[in-house]
């Protein structure tokens, strides 16, 4: 592993994965994410971008090859508890992420799971909403929010867990200018490492500085 290993957050070596036998989605894929990197992940629809995220989060098992996250080999379910604590995944469809009745309750879900006290959780909720520019949204009903507000709150539910890395799956698709800009600002002001799946080149230009293209089950620098 050598001297640089403590800077490597995610490292995939020769990873292959298939949903159905004989039709691999990822084929001998190599990838490294280092601390502080802001990476964009491009690729045609169905090329396996979402699959790659889910593999890193331990939502898909039975890959071949080596997956190291935070310096440790991750293979069985228990290995991923730490991964999920320290990496935040934003789902493409916010309706999948927001399941609680109110905004406050949804943001509180993650911190509660981490064992935080009620006082701490209330404070985290307040602070998270401030970061999102959604002060006073505590008691709003999640399914009645606008598309843009939903996406921001979904990001909030992830940020509330204080992750070190973000995996964002099509975060600005369908957002209006105003919400898209807020997304850009939040990302720029955070000092997180992240990988973004997007087709929005202007957006990627603003928030990332390294590009990968996924095709044929493999990654190429682009």
């Amino acid at each position: 592993m050598g001297m640089v290993s403590n800077n490597i957050l995610i490292e995939l070596e020769q990873v292959s994965f298939a949903y159905a036998p004989l039709r691999p989605v990822l084929r001998d894929l190599d990838f490294i994410l280092e601390k502080g990197e802001h990476v964009s992940l491009l690729g045609a629809n169905g090329s396996g971008k979402t699959t790659l995220f889910h593999l890193i989060m331990g939502l898909l098992m039975h890959y071949s090859g080596s997956l190291r996250v935070f310096g440790e080999e991750r293979r069985v379910r228990k290995d991923f508890d730490e991964v999920r604590r320290r990496i935040g995944l934003l789902f493409q469809d916010s309706d999948d992420q927001l399941f609680s009745p109110t905004v406050a309750e949804d943001i509180a879900f993650g911190p509660f799971n981490l064992g935080k006290s009620r006082e701490d959780v209330l404070w985290i909720v307040k602070e998270t909403l401030a970061v999102l520019g959604l002060e006073g949204f505590e008691d709003r009903v999640t399914y009645k929010l606008s598309g843009g507000e939903k996406r921001l709150v979904a990001l909030g539910t992830v940020l509330a867990m204080r992750p070190e890395v973000l995996l964002l799956d099509e975060p600005v698709i369908g957002l209006d200018e105003e919400h898209r800009n807020r997304f850009v600002n939040i990302l720029k002001e955070s000092n997180l490492s992240y990988i973004i799946i997007s087709h929005d080149h202007d957006f990627l230009e603003e928030v990332t500085n390294k590009r990968y293209l996924l095709g044929g089950g493999r990654l190429q620098g682009a």
Binding site: L59, R84, Q97, F99, G110, F112, L114, L122, V158
Partner: peptide, 24 residues
Amino acid sequence: ERSERIYHAMLCRGFQGRFYLLDH
């Protein structure tokens, strides 16, 4: 498929089978 995605999203936020409520 949606129910699966919701469950996955919950797992990603550290869901351990317990629900909490901020009561008011």
